[in-house]
Write a protein that binds this DNA or RNA. Structure first.
Lengths: 340, 340
DNA sequence: ATTGGCAGTCAGTTTGATCGAGTGCCAGTC
DNA sequence: GACTGGCACTCGATCAAACTGACTGCCAAT
């Protein structure tokens, strides 16, 4: 079994390796840290850590490097994250304070997070599932083109174009608009979808194809979940830490550009508003991200819906700092978007 | 002076170098292309091309590589772009055909373009400068938070959050809403801004601070130009062609993530709807993109406004193919968004 | 349980020799 | 005057051999 000191040794191996990217040897450990024992003793501890597969030696005669499992144990031991520096806190306040709308808040958030961590930052849009319809607007773009705009009380706005085969007249449009608003206003999205299905039958048969086109567009909009959208910033940081990826960063960039992958990964992770969860290395193998680590936390937006944010980077990253940053930003964002 | 055959030699040097990334020697030229002269003759031509600084030899005894100037001459000689293959044309049709709104069209466009060229693709949002206000909506999010939504007849939708110091009552909101729509509906954005400035004075003094908050938010929205927004796709392709960048791709990724840089670059380039313009290598030096080439074309959106799209990649890229793709996509997009 | 010492291993670096692609130039040919 | 064949020369790339130094594992001693 690994001793108390053994875990301490693991800790400094992770620390030093993250800082230097050099395999860490027993000698340099006793030099840089005051363990009060000799290098030979550290070697014995390291042999045990290697038995447990927490560290490995890249070649017969070299220092040790943490394994995925080693990072995992290291991270799980980080019970108490040290809080951010006051400068960092101020940066958060200053950066997010003066946002003008949801898109803007999230955009600023993702940029901020990538700056704080020097990694790729990710922010998922909050779900609209629980929000209510505030207003529906129909905008005529041409004689046969119509745009539907859906506004929800949580501040979401979404539009869609539709082609209408028949000519439109302004008068009828006005009627339809007020009819839609009367019917749908205040409903949550589930109920609205149901009502939309009934609507066409209430109009004259000649109008029905057109009404059907409008309502089906709206129904799609209502059901399309914005949850499946995310913002990203700081991809350049991947290039900065390129040496930490075995081949090229190409597969990683490719995987994160394919947002679907990330959304599935997000979906699999714990969503804890209080805490940060981590997936390290091979744990992400199914997502073509076996050489990356992902740190996420949940944040709560209006209506009690919960979405995720986090960072992605090489396995060799500064976990304490990055986890603290993710947690702090998630909390601040919850406060900003939560209930108010 | 460079002879006719000299230019032909330049052409094959660019072609072969782009294909192989190997400096091209006189011998391999006579082997792969039927010039009907000997290698020594080609060498003489190459010496002239070198005098003109169209090619250089990386080291004393190696083949030649095109200079930025060489690529420039090569590109300028590409008078007639060969059209896309029919498979490519079909891909465009299929990909863009079934889009649901402006955001969607542009998103699909940028992805398509990056797939066709295997480079980073860029699409600028069309300007709203000439569009008219279709509808203004005020959405109350909490007792002191309000969202303004601006809908234009070109299909643009934009929202903004504002904090109101005083309590809001629904009744007054309704009045303000209809007042705003009556005043602004149908106006173009310039005129609307002027009207907004007058509006607060028409209300009771007690209301004025709040009205002022709303109108100034709207005025900002009206004047904020969506022209300053662009979409990007295919950044992973930079990693694929990494060897073409002297150091790392980090500075390039950084520069393109800073969209402002690209927008300034776009602004400097010719905006020709018929044709594709190129900036190669050092021509982009001011933008920290001295190791990249940028190909752009203009496309026309509704209301006659013109925006740009294009690709960015290493200088060593397949110009004929990429220029043809940029042109084809720009034309298709013009047709899709143009006048209808 | 810890330590000092020692032999063994192996990646990384340096050195030097060799190889070969490609050039420039020149004298000769059409 | 344009083209060609031939030759000496340059210089990056490649490879093997030798060397260095950082570490480990193990063992006998404390």
């Amino acid at each position: 079994m690994v001793s108390e000191r053994g875990l301490e040794v693991l800790r400094v191996i992770v620390q030093d390796y993250v800082a230097s990217r050099e395999p860490v040897g027993s000698k340099s450990i006793v030099e840089r840290h005051s363990f009060g024992v000799s290098a030979a003793t550290i070697r014995n501890d390291m042999a045990l850590l290697e038995d447990e597969e927490l560290i490995v030696a890249p070649h017969t005669s070299s220092g040790r490097v943490p394994t995925d499992k080693g990072y995992r144990v290291f991270v799980d031991q980080l019970a108490d994250l040290r809080p951010l520096t006051s400068a960092q806190r101020q940066a958060i306040e200053a950066f997010l304070g003066e946002s003008v709308d949801l898109d803007d808040v999230l955009m600023r958030t993702v940029r901020l997070l990538s700056q704080l961590t020097h990694q790729v930052a990710l922010v998922q849009y909050p779900s609209r599932a629980v929000s209510r319809i505030r207003h529906v607007e129909l905008v005529q773009l041409s004689s046969t083109k119509l745009m539907t705009v859906l506004i929800t009380d949580s501040g979401g706005v979404e539009q869609r174009l539709i082609d209408i085969s028949t000519e439109l007249d302004e008068e009828f449009l006005t009627e339809l608009r007020s009819r839609l608003n009367n019917t749908l206003g205040g409903l949550n999205l589930q109920d609205a979808a149901a009502r939309l299905a009934e609507l066409p039958t209430q109009f004259a048969p000649s109008r029905q194809p057109m009404i059907a086109a409008v309502t089906s567009a709206l129904a799609e909009q209502v059901l399309a979940n914005r949850h499946d959208k995310l913002l990203m910033a700081g991809t350049a940081n991947l290039a900065r830490t390129e040496e930490d990826f075995s081949g090229s960063i190409f597969p990683v960039l490719e995987a994160i550009e394919e947002q679907v992958t990330l959304l599935r990964l997000f979906a699999e992770m714990d969503v804890d508003v209080r805490d940060v969860s981590a997936r390290i290395g091979r744990e992400n193998e199914n997502f073509a991200l076996g050489e990356t680590a992902v740190l996420t936390s949940g944040y709560s937006a209006s209506g009690g819906s919960i979405a995720r944010l986090g960072v992605l980077g090489p396995i060799r990253m500064d976990y304490p700092n990055n986890m603290a940053a993710v947690r702090a930003v998630a909390r601040y964002l919850s406060r900003l978007l939560g209930e108010d």
